[in-house]
């Protein structure tokens, strides 16, 4: 399972999230997509199977910037970290149809458990890997 990490700005949330990804998927190659172009290129690579995209938005514009390329997220499960709880931010976030919407001030325990569950179910033949 591919884990794609998009983080336009290097900050403390990014480091914490990287630790979460590494703890759930030790084989993660550690690449962080910094721009929409990097992310698009990564998503356009053929996937072996299901992919998960962790999208860390530092501001609402980061989420809005992802909307034009939302087609590329087909067959990809999105975990979105929104920068704030403003109505407009949340409305933009839901347009990406994330499997989990959380916020950058969280402890990311929710990201850890959701990521771990998706991966475990995917590897378990009796798990709910499908949609």
């Amino acid at each position: 399972m591919d884990v794609v990490f998009y983080s336009p700005t290097n900050g403390s949330s990014e480091e914490r999230l990287q630790r979460v990804i590494e703890s759930v998927t030790p084989a993660w190659e550690g690449t962080v997509c910094r721009t929409i172009e990097d992310l698009s290129e990564r998503l356009l690579q053929p996937k072996n199977d299901l992919a998960i995209a962790l999208l860390l938005a530092e501001k609402r514009e980061d989420i809005e910037g992802l909307l034009p390329v939302s087609n590329l997220f087909r067959n990809t499960r999105i975990i979105l970290i929104a920068p704030d709880r403003n109505k407009e931010t949340i409305a933009a976030a839901h347009r990406l149809r994330p499997r989990l919407l959380t916020y950058s001030d969280s402890d990311f325990a929710d990201v850890f458990t959701v990521l771990a569950k998706i991966i475990a179910d995917h590897h378990n033949p009796n798990g709910m890997g499908g949609r």
Partner: peptide
């Protein structure tokens, strides 16, 4: 909004 709740992805405690 169209709000997705992925019941398969969310652990029971969440």
């Amino acid at each position: 909004s169209f709000v997705v709740v992925d019941c398969a992805a969310l652990p029971k405690n969440l």
